[in-house]
Design a protein around this nucleic acid. Structure first.
Length: 245
DNA sequence: CCAGACGTTGTT
DNA sequence: GTCTGG
DNA sequence: CCAGACGTTGTT
DNA sequence: GTCTGG
């Protein structure tokens, strides 16, 4: 799955990498330990009323989707992932799948591997999960397939600047055999040549979105065992992704 | 009809 | 908002 | 995802 | 054990 990740690029990097037209994010704090409910930058495409063309935007969002009908934001921390198999059907995700697709930029993400070998060896003691950092083999930026939603805070008046909360969720799929030994689910990673198709706001029919999702390939990632400092969200910094012997 | 859920993960 | 369960 | 809390009362 | 916070 994807419950903790790394995004240490600057706004400038993201604008260049994703060919962003408009940015609504002034600065991005590099984070090597992004956790559910944290603010994150996301990329989306919207149709421009003036020009009729499509504009790519870098916007702030909070990780953990809050459906627009939610009474409050409690429980958002559980909607950090959406299963690709069912996302076009689930009431919490189907509207967003049709009309609010996004990309979440990331350098990599963490899994906590509970290894069979460790289990066998540790019958006497307790089983420690092994934090593992997964990243592109070439170190390149990843783009997680994501959905977003806009949630109107019912406790605030319609004209209040904080009335609308944008939240997001990252799609997951079954892990390939090569990654499956670490974890049975992995985030859906959109290859660069599919970014435009994924973000295209004109693609709204369920069957078209379904086909789009089904066309997403298995991610090819490199695992690296890291230290347990990443376990606590209070820790941050490049040392979290340093390899551990 | 109204009430209540709406989700994923891991673990057993 | 929309679906399911009662 | 993991870490850390998990409770009430009265008094300062 | 289970929920909340980050």
């Amino acid at each position: 799955m994807c419950g903790r990740y790394v995004m240490a690029q600057s706004v400038g990097d993201l604008v260049a990498e994703f060919d962003v037209d408009e940015t609504y994010v002034e600065t991005v704090e590099p984070s090597y330990n992004i956790a559910p409910t944290d603010p994150v930058p996301i990329v989306l495409d919207r149709r421009d009323r003036e020009t009729g063309g499509t504009s790519r935007k870098l916007v702030p969002a909070r990780w953990g989707l809050v459906p627009p009908w939610s009474k409050d934001t409690k429980g958002a921390a559980r909607l950090i992932n959406a299963r690709r198999e069912t996302v076009t059907e689930k009431p919490s995700f189907r509207k967003a799948a049709a009309a609010k697709r996004a990309l979440v930029p990331a350098n990599g993400y963490y899994e906590w591997e509970k290894r069979a070998a460790q289990e066998a060896a540790g019958k006497a003691g307790k089983v420690e999960k092994i934090p593992t950092y997964l990243h592109a083999a070439d170190g390149g930026l990843l783009a997680f397939a994501a959905l977003f939603e806009n949630w109107p805070d019912p406790t605030l008046p319609p004209d209040h600047p904080e009335r609308w909360l944008r939240t997001c969720t990252i799609l997951t799929g079954p892990a390939s055999d090569t990654l499956g030994y670490i974890h049975d689910r992995t985030p859906v990673i959109v290859p660069r040549e599919m970014w435009d198709d994924w973000l295209n706001p004109e693609t709204t029919r369920e069957e078209d979105v379904r086909a789009l999702i089904d066309s997403m390939p298995e991610p090819h990632l490199t695992p690296r065992i890291v230290g347990s400092m990443v376990n606590s969200v209070r820790n941050n910094g490049p040392e979290l992704i340093e390899p551990v012997g």
